[in-house]
Nucleic acid binder design. Structure first.
Lengths: 193, 193
DNA sequence: ACCTGAACACCGTTCAAGT
DNA sequence: ACCTGAACACCGTTCAAGT
């Protein structure tokens, strides 16, 4: 192998797998941020040559996409039976908590164009909450791409939202921007203090 | 020089300057997105060797920071005498319009840690509007760094905000997160439709 | 099938040299 | 002072070769 006695290798030999690759990449990101995720660095973390990763992950972009999804899977869903308003509050708070633990995940979520299912799930909620702030995505394009990769019977509500609104010809998010803006401004003006 | 007859050079010879470098970088970004901004590519845009840029810009990071600021300078301020609520609305809309024209600028604004004065100015407003959505910055640290580089008599309101709130020991943005969240949820619940 | 070494075309940045 | 060529230490990725 590498000439070192087996006892000095960092881990006992274990076959590589997509899962081990993604876990290693996550560790690298937790230590050094998103920019530290590098084919060569992740390979080193696994005591393996850089090229070996390509047998389990098509390229770097896919590796980074694969790393974001488990983070969002870690966000617990609110208990059943909660009233809608309270459920939203619980969800928003636990999302905030998980993102605070993996600070690098938020910026990734914003920039990725091929998010996994868990990312999509939470992204849909966050998208609604944040709409007033960042309505700048090229919605038609992004939405179309997402729909293409969405398995037929997954996330029916997200699918409905995309098909019935975002993909309608002439759909323009300006009106939702104005709606959200007025919502916040009105609420601020009417606040008790 | 490069052996080509002068007539074939793309532009008549002109001395390099920080300004020309930043303008060239902006053009590169408008064409190919943030990731296209590269020391070597910007140099090529200017018909110059990569190393020449280092005489006008300390490094790539500073170059990217320098590129964001002019974009925000392009956001017009609302006319004087507007009522506060209407002024905020106008400002939010024109911010949205300029960012839509330079799509790459928003992601840069989020990730930069050494923004220029114009970026700061608008960032402060956007920060307030978006607080419910992205309260995850390490506020003490970012705020401290910003203050250090802020000239003494610039942006007094931003300074006041930072000193009186963000830098207070034990300051925790959780409470503002909850405040913003409730504001939106209450408003949604009370909406006419 | 899975892992690898060498190679290719790119990066940012330093340094010594040119004018 | 400003521009440059060569070099260094890094990238992602391909390809042919090993097992």
């Amino acid at each position: 192998m590498n000439g070192l006695p087996t006892a000095l290798r960092r881990e006992p030999y274990k076959r590589l797998s997509r899962d081990r690759v993604l876990r290693a990449a996550t560790q690298v990101a937790d230590r050094g941020g998103v920019k530290a995720i590098t084919i060569r660095r992740v390979a080193q973390e696994l005591d393996v040559e850089a090229m070996s990763l390509y047998h389990h992950v098509p390229n770097k972009e896919a590796m980074v996409d694969g790393v974001v999804d488990p983070v969002f899977t870690a966000i617990p869903l609110p208990a059943d039976g909660l009233e809608c308003r309270e459920a939203t509050r619980v969800r928003a708070r636990s999302t905030r908590a998980v993102l605070a633990k993996h600070r690098w995940a938020l910026e990734l979520m914003d920039s990725r164009r091929s998010p996994g299912p868990a990312t999509l799930h939470h992204d849909a909620l966050l998208g609604v909450l944040r709409k007033a702030g960042s309505p700048l995505d090229d919605l038609q394009e992004v939405a179309g791409g997402i729909l293409e990769h969405l398995p037929a019977h997954e996330l029916p509500h997200l699918r409905e939202l995309v098909v019935d609104h975002a993909l309608q010809p002439g759909y323009d998010c300006s009106s939702e921007f104005d709606y959200g803006l007025d919502l916040v401004l009105d609420a601020l003006e009417a606040r008790p203090t």
